[in-house]
Structure formats: structure tokens, C-alpha cells
Design a protein around this nucleic acid. Sequence first.
DNA 1: ATTGATATTGATAATGATTATCAATATACT
DNA 2: AGTATATTGATAATCATTATCAATATCAAT
Lengths: 148, 148
Amino acid sequence: MDERQVLEHYLKERGLKMTKARLLILEAFLGMESHVTAERLYEAVHKLDDGIGQATVFRNIRLFTDAGLAREACRDDGPRQYEHAWRHAHHDHLSCIQCGAVIEFVDGAIETAQQAVYKKYGYVPSGHRMELFGLCPDCAARHNSPQT
Amino acid sequence: MDERQVLEHYLKERGLKMTKARLLILEAFLGMESHVTAERLYEAVHKLDDGIGQATVFRNIRLFTDAGLAREACRDDGPRQYEHAWRHAHHDHLSCIQCGAVIEFVDGAIETAQQAVYKKYGYVPSGHRMELFGLCPDCAARHNSPQT
DNA sequence: ATTGATATTGATAATGATTATCAATATACT
DNA sequence: AGTATATTGATAATCATTATCAATATCAAT
Ligand SMILES: [Mn+2]
Ligand SMILES: [Mn+2]
Ligand SMILES: [Zn+2]
Ligand SMILES: [Zn+2]
């Protein structure tokens, strides 16, 4: 089952309709790298068909999220960021506060410890978001030897 | 060194001035429980002195953050949330997606594992943010027995 | 205490991101 | 093809926050 089929199934299931715009936005999204903002997605879509309004892009990336094709990535501030969710497993982020470089990772020990926290407080897990901030190796080096 | 002294020190250090409004907003903030929004802080301040504008509240809670008296709490969406930072150690959040109940916790195993992740990728740690989502015990119970 | 340089304030406009509104149109069943 | 209704694009509205700016308060030096 590929992304288009997932969407078609999701739509049919609740009486929604497939449209030219919807499909185009999906294709644009699939062709972009992770951490896409609605604005950047709109720009990409606009190149393929300049008749598509940006409200439609906002509406549909949101729909894709409900359908399980996209998910909101960590964002500290600024516009919402989306990443692919279909066949893209959960992961957390390690971000450089200087240059913005982002590493995606999964750490077994952390995931296990998180389950223990849920258990301790009697909560039923539904998901989590974790972002580690720091200086990437390059920025750290530049930081320690400013103009040597 | 109490909060007021911290602020005074921070101000003097960079040629800024202490004002009536500034002090009032600080006192209001200190008198409120964690996870305060600028709007709620403004309401509290307004009761003490209705001549204080809300831009001033926005400006000063931001200043407190720079001064190390406040810090931004996790927020998924909606207005920015602040919590006390002076003599309030780092912690993470476990939130109920149904009723919004929030538990603050620190887990040694997670903190240790996070350091290992930093090391693995050669990043210099500067902080992190983690929020676990789920159903609190009450909401989970209500969810399993809707109207029994 | 008076002065003077300047940081601060309150009111309000502006911004940025997202959502709501709505008439026109496209879609998908029959 | 006909029909009910979901969708669209344009645009207005909303929400949280920041910028602008003239008037005022602060504070270190006289
Ligand atoms: Mn990611
Ligand atoms: Mn907290
Ligand atoms: Zn970097
Ligand atoms: Zn709950």
C-alpha cells in the first residue's frame, strides 16, 4: 500500500473526495525532504500549478497528518514543520542551536525509560516529543577557536 | 540571593533600569503557579495596577527569561507558557491529552542516556525539551467505561 | 535636589501563521 | 446526465507576539 492508496482509503472511509489539487500537494510533499513548512510546500506546489491557493495547502497537509501520511516535527518556534510519517518510524531530534543542523535518532534506552515513567504515574502512552539542543561538532569547533 | 536581587543584578549589569511596573510584574509572576501564560500574568498584574499595559507584561516576562528567573515550559500549541526557573531545577513533562493534567518529573536513566546521545554525535549539550503524552489514570478509566 | 541622557512605558499598529467564511466549482454516486 | 455535497481560491478574521513612537520615569553625575 503506497501513500496515494493510503490517502484514497482514508478519503473513501469518510465520504471525502479526491481532487486534482489534493493529489498534486501529496506528490509535492512526497518529493520533498523532511521538515517541510506549509509555506515551502506551497512554493513547491505553486511551481507545478500556479492556480492552487495556499489555504488549500494548509488544509491538505493537515489532512495528510490526520491520515497518517505526515506528522508534526519538533518545532521550537516559528511555523509548523511536517515530516513524512508513512513508513517513517518515530524518532527524536538533536538540533544545533547555532546552524540549525538536525540529526534524527532513536535511542532504545530512552524509549524504555519513558515507558517506565508512564507506568510509574499510571498514564496510558500515546506518544512523545523530545528534542535535544546543543552545538554540532563544526559549530563547537568554530566557537572554541573564533578566528585562529 | 532572592529573585528580586537576581533581577536587580541582571539590570545593573547591562545598564537597564528597575521600574515600578517591572517589580510588580515580577511579584505577580512569583505569586503564580507554574505554567503561566503572558495573558494570565497580565490579568493578575492588572488586578494590582490597572494602568499597566500588556505589551509591558510581554516585554518583562521575556526579560525575566533572559535573566534566568523564568523559562519557557513545553507547549504544543497555543500561547507560550512560562514557569519559574530560579531555584527550580530542570524537569520534563507528562501530559494528559484529554484533561490537560501535567506531571513534572525527572528521570535519571533518561538524562544519562541523553548525554550518551550527545557524545555519540559529538554535540555539546545545551539543554533539551521532552514531553510525554498519554491518558491520565482518571481519563483512562473514563475512557474504558464510558457510561457504566 | 537638579540635570540630562536614555531606558521604559502604554497605546496602538503591524506582523506572521493559521483558520474561518463563502460563493463558485469539482467530484462521485445514482 | 443529474444531484447532493465536498472542495476550492480569495479574502477576511483571529491569535499571539513584536515593532513603533511620543511621553515619561529612572538613575548616575553634578
Ligand atoms: Mn524528523
Ligand atoms: Mn514545568
Ligand atoms: Zn551547528
Ligand atoms: Zn486526564
